[in-house]
Design a protein around this nucleic acid. Structure first.
Lengths: 185, 185
DNA sequence: ATGTGCATGTAAATTGTTACATGATTCA
DNA sequence: TGAATCATGTAACAATTTACATGCACAT
């Protein structure tokens, strides 16, 4: 029997989370792999990271699946490949956003681990540790406030949700600070 | 020249974070590998996880370094090895708790990633996604409240900090809920 | 007698990071 | 002319998870 012609992307491809992240960033205008990395670091860095090494294979995979389309666009003699999302890509992203699968949540925080064990210290040292954890969150809050202007720009361009997730990052670390202060009496 | 007698544990051994977690849990009374796993799942699960596979090699490593001491203590015909922390282990744990090294903080949250991209959806679907993220946090809050009695027991036994970190978990997810509600007007 | 919890272990696979390498462009 | 940024790539390594495997003890 004749094999089906390879015109449409298969509907059954499974993408990993990092690939969806790359897809979403391309949709928001990150054209090159380098730009994707930069945008991740300046937006969702608080709750997702991705290393440069993972990005380029993801872009290839997405292009082969017809979810993004790329073309060479060198800057002078420096090679560069730029991408745009396709209709299929947009549909795929939306499907992922609404699918009812459980959403992974994974926190790894040495600061809280140390605090959990702080009864092993004398009172003075424990208080210092608490202060260190508090300070770390205070720095994070400041850092997140610093990127707020970028989220405002996104809002002005019609993207409301980047600002929302930024607010959540700030709220999280503020909550840590509040609990620290509360514990101190 | 004669080599130094191998009486004291070397001062230079480097432990990984999971090994310190195991050490801390043994200090709090988790005697077997199985008990360590259970205690982790019932206490610091919100900000640190460890798989059973990592625990047994950690215990061996800690024992070889003289930080814990183990003995066979079978239950009937079922073999079991139980551990206690040593003075050296206690000192090592304290040193780790106060060392000024930067404390890793790593959050991976698909829920927030999806929310970040939610402008790709129409308003109705985006609102549903927001509700899903909110609900997830509400469930977490409930779950964390459920283990509060255990933290209270720890407090009664002189360990104040487990309750503090539990409160932080609750505060974090409550912050997410508050920001969701605020965004909804 | 049967299911749940206790207790440990191995092998394979996945996933992600670090380090290194290269070179062009842009701006001060 | 030198530093920062743009842009992509490879190789080796480290960390962690999933799946599988085994068997006793205890309570219903």
């Amino acid at each position: 029997m004749p094999s089906q012609p390879d015109l449409a992307p298969p509907k059954t491809i499974e993408l990993t989370a990092p690939a969806y992240v790359v897809l979403g960033m391309v949709r928001l205008g990150a054209s090159s792999g380098y730009a994707v990395k930069r945008m991740v670091d300046r937006s969702i860095r608080f709750f997702w990271t991705i290393s440069q090494v993972q990005i380029y294979p993801s872009l290839e995979q997405l292009e082969q699946a017809g979810l993004i389309i790329g073309r060479e666009d060198p800057r002078g003699r420096r090679p560069r490949r730029v991408y745009e999302i396709t209709q299929a890509g947009d549909a795929m992203l939306q499907r992922w956003l609404v699918e009812p699968a459980p959403m992974l949540f994974e926190l790894r925080d040495i600061g809280l681990v140390k605090l959990f064990f702080a009864d092993a210290l004398d009172r003075e040292q424990a208080t210092e540790l608490l202060a260190a954890v508090r300070q770390r969150s205070a720095e994070r809050v400041a850092q997140l406030h610093r990127i707020e202007p970028e989220a405002e720009v996104a809002r002005a361009a019609g993207n409301l949700y980047p600002l929302l997730t930024l607010r959540m990052g700030i709220a999280y670390h503020q909550a840590v600070i509040d609990v620290c202060d509360d514990f101190d009496r």
